[in-house]
């Protein structure tokens, strides 16, 4: 194989700098840890609240003041959430939709990013930056015509209709182009001299070097599509196709009554787990990739 190694993006430098003294005042250390504790509690507390509430009985849930730990944890709310609405079916739908979008974005972005990074033609950079500009166009701005277009293709209320507008995007192309630009031209020249065609260059020589970028984009797109609410809400009618977020919305709206709030929270927990798990499994590479996307921008 090649001599080029994957490029680690430094998220942390070995020696932090300002204010570094030979030995720190113990009070400073205590203060720093106290601040760190605050910083970590801010995200953790609501998540903690989600988990404990999902395991409370309705009676305990309604207590004023609230209890800070479930006295007799129960899985009843979870079971009710799973039986009240078709969560498992929705999980499959979300996996199909998010998975389809992710794979498509990866493929289209790698090929387009490769051209923008390594091919030369007139107007290339103008075209590239025009594509990047669409990154700043929120979907809500084009919602009405998009709805009209997709429904007049006869695709409303289909998997394809939910996925179609999200099968490629500017962020992915941008990310891939930035990473592919770091691959030396010599490598691609060498592959060409070996007689490799453009397809083989991409699949056999470029893709293996893009692992961090691919993981980052894959996780990013998966999370984005999994959490996308507005578009499925607009284009889907039948529950059988609902992704998890819409099913959770259904659960939320027809169990408005107070006694079922813990069921809704159990549903929220179920709906959050897949993306959280994907994130935790890939966090090392993903966080670095997101960091790199910022630097390279």
């Amino acid at each position: 194989m090649t001599a080029v190694t994957e490029k680690p993006i430094p998220v942390e430098r070995a020696r932090p700098v300002p204010g570094r003294r030979r030995r720190r005042n113990p009070w400073t250390t205590a203060l720093l840890y106290a601040l760190l504790a605050v910083v970590v509690l801010i995200p953790l507390f609501p998540l903690y609240w989600l988990v404990i509430s999902a395991f409370k009985t309705p009676a305990e849930f309604a207590q004023i003041p609230p209890t800070w730990f479930p006295a007799s944890p129960t899985i009843d709310p979870t079971v009710t959430a799973l039986t009240e609405v078709p969560f498992l079916q929705s999980m499959m739908n979300s996996i199909i939709i998010a998975g389809g979008c992710t794979i498509s974005v990866l493929v289209t972005s790698i090929f387009a990013g490769y051209v923008f990074a390594k091919h030369h033609f007139r107007g290339r950079d103008l075209l590239f930056w025009s594509v990047v500009a669409t990154m700043f166009l929120p979907p809500i701005v084009t919602l009405v015509p998009l709805y009209y277009l997709v429904s007049s293709m006869g695709l409303s209320d289909t998997y394809l209709g939910v996925m179609l507008p999200w099968l490629a995007n500017a962020f992915g192309i941008f990310l891939m182009r930035q990473f592919i630009m770091d691959i030396p031209d010599e490598l691609i020249e060498a592959a060409r001299l070996d007689g490799a065609g453009e397809f083989r260059i991409v699949w056999q020589f470029v893709v293996p070097l893009l692992k961090p970028a691919i993981v980052t984009l894959a996780v990013f797109m998966f999370v984005y599509s999994w959490n996308n609410f507005l578009w499925p809400l607009s284009i889907l009618r039948s529950d059988a196709l609902y992704p998890v977020v819409l099913t959770l919305n259904r659960l939320m709206s027809y169990t408005m009554s107070f006694e079922y709030q813990n069921v809704v929270l159990a549903g929220a927990l179920i709906a959050s787990l897949p993306t959280l798990i994907v994130f935790i499994v890939t966090q090392r590479v993903f966080v670095q990739g997101i960091a790199a996307s910022g630097i390279k921008g």
Binding site: P43, L44, F229, L276
Partner: peptide, 18 residues
Amino acid sequence: RVILFATYVIPTIAIVII
């Protein structure tokens, strides 16, 4: 850092409920 970032991947609807 990882914990801070975790809130970003949770669906907004779940966050709304929380």
